[in-house]
């Protein structure tokens, strides 16, 4: 089962490598990982998408918590949450027909064309993983995909619940 873990940890040299090392050392799976400092520059927040049954997830949460740098970890998928991922994708747009079609699909998915070349469009889209997958599949049926990059997902709990240092 796919899970999204949010981790709050000290923004110090080596703290990311401890997280990544732990996952590989204990044969846990990383589907995607994003990291950046928070509004408090002494803290970083990591979002990891992972897969595993309840037993594995329990170990992941405990093992991450055990790292000295880690303040908090939470499984966002346990409760209502918002999940977003950013996609940048470059596709072939050589003639009027394909340009029109790419623009139409992009509008339907509420994406934005953010750059154009002689023969290519670059599109930006945010959403959850399912939406991004659907968009990529639809585009692939209409034109050729030159290149794509995904940020990996970030997430936040709905409502009052928050992941904070205190």
């Amino acid at each position: 089962m796919r899970r999204i873990l949010a981790i709050l940890l000290e923004n110090e040299a080596g703290s990311l490598s401890r997280i990544v090392g732990l996952f590989s050392q204990r044969a846990f799976n990383i589907v995607s990982l994003t990291v950046a400092p928070t509004e408090d520059a002494s803290l970083s927040r990591i979002t990891i998408a992972t897969e595993g049954d309840d037993k594995i997830l329990e170990q992941i949460v405990k093992q991450v918590n055990k790292l000295i740098d880690v303040l908090k970890i939470t499984d966002l998928t346990e409760r209502q949450h918002v999940e977003r991922e950013l996609l940048l994708i470059k596709v072939l747009a050589m003639n009027d027909k394909s340009r029109t079609e790419v623009k139409r699909i992009t509008d339907i998915f509420r994406g934005a064309i953010i750059d154009i070349g002689k023969q290519v469009y670059t599109i930006q889209l945010t959403g959850d993983a399912d939406k991004l997958n659907a968009f990529i599949n639809t585009l692939a049926n209409e034109t050729e995909i030159i290149e794509s990059v995904r940020s990996g997902c970030v997430g936040i709990a709905r409502g009052e619940k928050a992941l904070r240092a205190k």
């Binding site: 080596g14 490598s17 401890r18 090392g21 050392q25």
Partner: peptide, 14 residues
């Protein structure tokens, strides 16, 4: 050495 020992320490400092 911090990298080499990472999986076998409780913690490490640079």
């Amino acid at each position: 050495i911090v990298g080499c020992s990472r999986p076998i320490v409780k913690h490490s400092f640079n």
